[in-house]
Write a protein that binds this DNA or RNA. Structure first.
Lengths: 211, 211
DNA sequence: GACAACATACCAACTGGTCGGTATGTTTTG
DNA sequence: CAAAACATACCGACCAGTTGGTATGTTGTC
């Protein structure tokens, strides 16, 4: 999608605009975030914006790609990969996701989930970039889930489908957190998902379960 | 909120604007739907719009209230209340929700879930109206869930919390359906939720479970 | 029951401001 | 000095909201 080489100095306009988009779009949504807003937040002029991005839509695609890159780096280096047992890794992943749900709503919610809800019909390019981010992240869970299910002789469940379900639960938790202005419900939904995986594999849910 | 007596003829501007909002906001989002768009779709003039609604935000609140009223009427008369056993009613509710997920994305997704994602920070009034719609619907599930859990000696689960979780799963399914442009993932998430409830209560999941 | 006083429902034209985007510069860098 | 990386100034379209009006009731009073 982008053959633009990121060889410029790190304080250049492009990365600052992507950071601004990551912040502002999660706060206000894509349509309500104007190009002027982004420029003001990033401390660049409109000329710089349209030097780096052909259109606002192109920025949306780049922001989704940027989000995919930064989140995949975050999850790649996270500690939940450490446990030797696959099921423990799945539990650790869910615990990690629950830990991330804290503070202000705009800080823990998902950029691509927010964007795709608005533009899924009007912008096929942004929709595809958001899909790639969500589906790509789900794909990183498939191996652990598949091993965990196989270890516990669970045969009726498709690992890829369950991985996508985990993302649905997270996205839904974010929406209810926004509606109720309270992160708790999102953490609780992750806890329910963890409980489901435990029941599925016939093990006690690690770390208590009062809800 | 409105002391306006609905004595006027049924083809007046107000209900047609609410219907237009229900349709257009689900397609394009709240910010991307202009007052002119709404007027054109409803076949009324801008003067009529601002006669009935003080602002675009006021229409958003009214649309959320209208959504709460129409959906609660739909669910109140649905057949899933028929089974004598509470757990069967919960399963029937989830089957009903899965049945509704069909056709074009904008036809089965949730107006208030879409709206609240965009305006949760910028408009407290719309956020509260959307919260009331979601939380109010979840509340209609609490009694059946509580009875079902009690019948099967499940004590560690709070019925109200589980009711909210069902709504999170649905909202998350809608987002993934938008991202992937495919309703299947949303129906599948409801199937996972049904499976969870079955495991929780120690009964076989009714109606098969291949995923 | 006639008529003034008022209320509701709507309309066409308009306003100030903001939108995404462009044209044309100037500065920085290899 | 050439190209990339900006900055300034601007454009037409569109935005939410306002204006001053009309047509059609409804209501109170004698």
């Amino acid at each position: 999608m982008s053959s633009r080489a990121p060889l410029s100095k790190p304080t250049s306009a492009r990365p600052r605009l992507l950071d601004a988009a990551t912040r502002l779009v999660r706060e206000k949504g894509f349509a309500a975030t104007s190009v002027d807003d982004l420029c003001a937040d990033a401390g660049v002029t409109k000329g710089a914006f349209f030097h780096h991005f052909a259109s606002k839509e192109a920025l949306g695609v780049a922001a989704a790609d940027h989000w995919a890159a930064t989140t995949s780096a975050l999850f790649a280096k996270a500690a939940y990969h450490a446990p030797a047992d696959p099921l423990d890794r799945v539990f650790a992943y869910l615990d990690f996701r629950a830990e991330l749900i804290a503070g202000d709503v705009a800080e823990f919610t998902c950029l691509v989930g927010t964007m795709v809800q608005e533009v899924h019909e009007s912008s096929p390019a942004i929709r595809a970039a958001c899909d790639a981010s969500i589906t790509g992240h789900a794909e990183t869970l498939v191996a652990d889930i598949a091993e965990a299910l196989a270890d516990h002789r669970v045969e009726a469940i498709n690992p890829r489908s369950l991985a996508l379900h985990t993302q649905a639960v997270l996205q839904g938790g974010f929406i209810l957190a926004k509606a109720r202005n309270d992160p708790m419900i999102a953490r609780q939904s992750v806890a329910y998902l963890k409980h489901y995986v435990a029941l599925l594999c016939g093990v006690p849910v690690p770390g208590g379960e009062a809800k």
